[in-house]
Design a protein around this nucleic acid. Structure first.
Length: 420
RNA sequence: CGACGUGAUUUUGGCAA
């Protein structure tokens, strides 16, 4: 046994995992007694190397012999399985831990909670959240942030407010990450007034709120069309010692550009430059969008060529924005020319570029060109997404080519892209 | 033996419309 142990640990240290596995198997077959500690160490290694199926196999083996893992190894095991989203395996491990009165560490809990929240198993997450408290494993700021994020996603706002206050009552002062999660999550669902109230409650707190937290709120108010309020928040952050940054300006600018307020947009640019902030590619791309919406494609194009390209800021978004505008105004020839130009500029087209063009050609009745582009996209190694498939399927259906549409649908599922 | 984990804010594409 000692010799096997030495061999295995040597192989592990040398990174020769397969040899270690082979040796471990020999150890089992040799008839010498294999102890819980051997399984523990070995499973620990397998988990670290992401050999989860194998780890589960040996885990079952050791369990049937009446052994169990240390809570350290259990915690690592659970964390690892979270990455693989193996919910029932995790469930089983938690039950087994419970039987021996072991409690997962805070890391394992947080990772598990995050998985549950992302899989929209919110109720289960809340259960686990309660369980961990009962077991004496107290939530930390990360735990709360994770739960808040989940509650926002599930739009459970009343519960959210409750937990937010519970957190402070327990004595946790939320950090900027937690505040950002809260504000962003609420704003994403249009709950801007609630976000505002809760944030104001934080202003007097111990932490200096970061500009990104404010920016999230500014963006929220812009999106629901309440610019006045957005502006007020910008003044507020200034008064509270938090300088508006490039993102703040870009957020306001985006609103102007979406609403065709180009004069306002110009003013904003001047203002930001006066404050010593240089426009970045977001700034320019938003301006391009503004010009496009105002039907000034020539201005948009010259901005891209004369400003962005000179500063090395021209990117795929700039091109996509222009191509979309050209498609919308039925100038497919020019759209395609710009597409070809991207290659010369060294800007790689992405899935969005292709969807835009495909949609444009279909609308103009050039199904052949659209289909060619789809193949070209696959050929260039781009990974298609649900949008580009929907575009294809939609047009094929609407032009009566149901069977072909169906084959695209099957194709997309086979590629592991879930239809929405 | 302690790896791995949480939100971060602003720009471009389809259908449902």
């Amino acid at each position: 046994r000692s010799i096997y142990r030495i061999l295995i640990s040597g192989y592990v240290r040398a990174g020769l995992i397969n040899l270690a596995i082979q040796t471990f198997n020999e150890m089992i077959d040799s008839g010498c007694r294999v102890f819980g500690i051997d399984y523990n160490r070995f499973i620990g290694v397998l988990v670290r190397e992401h050999y989860f199926d194998m780890a589960e196999h040996y885990y079952r083996m050791m369990m049937s012999q009446g052994f169990s893992l240390s809570s350290f190894t259990y915690s690592r095991f659970i964390s690892g399985l979270c990455k693989m989203k193996k919910l029932d395996s995790i469930q089983k491990l938690l039950e087994d831990m419970d039987k021996i009165n072991a409690v997962p560490d805070i890391w394992a809990y947080n990772i598990y909670l995050n998985l549950l929240c992302n899989e929209i198993r919110l109720d289960m997450a809340l259960e686990v959240f309660e369980t961990m408290k009962k077991k004496g494993r107290n939530p930390d700021t990360v735990t709360y942030t994770t739960i808040i994020n989940g509650l926002c996603k599930a739009q459970r706002f009343q519960t959210l407010v409750g937990i937010w206050h519970e957190m402070m009552k327990v004595g946790f002062c939320p950090d900027n990450v937690a505040c950002g999660t809260l504000i962003f999550g609420l704003c994403k669902h249009g709950k801007v007034d609630l976000a505002y109230v809760l944030l104001m409650g934080m202003v007097k707190g111990q932490i200096q709120l970061s500009s990104s937290v404010f920016n999230a709120l500014v963006s929220g108010f812009c999106r629901v069309g309440r610019v006045d309020k957005a502006q007020a928040i910008v003044s507020f952050m200034r008064r509270n010692g938090c300088k508006p940054d490039i993102v703040t300006y870009n957020t306001l600018l985006n609103y102007c550009c979406s609403e065709l307020m180009l004069v306002e947009a110009e003013k904003l640019i001047e203002k930001m430059e006066r404050n010593g902030i240089r426009p970045d590619r977001y700034t320019y791309n938003q301006l391009i969008k503004g010009f496009c919406r105002a039907n000034q494609l020539d201005k948009a194009y010259s901005l891209m060529i004369n400003k962005m390209e000179v500063e090395g800021l021209c990117d795929v978004v700039s091109c996509n924005t222009l191509i979309a505008a050209l498609c919308r105004t039925r100038r497919m020839g020019m759209a395609y020319k710009l597409f070809e130009e991207m290659d010369r500029k060294g800007v790689k087209p992405d899935v969005i570029t292709f969807s835009t063009l495909i949609n444009g050609f279909f609308r103009e009745g050039h199904a052949d060109l659209a289909e060619e582009l789809f193949d070209q996209m696959l050929g260039s190694g781009l990974v298609p997404d649900a949008v580009v498939y929907t575009t294809m399927i939609d047009h094929l259906c609407k032009t009566g080519r149901i069977e072909l549409a169906r084959s695209f649908f099957i194709d997309m599922i086979e590629k592991g892209i879930p239809p929405d």
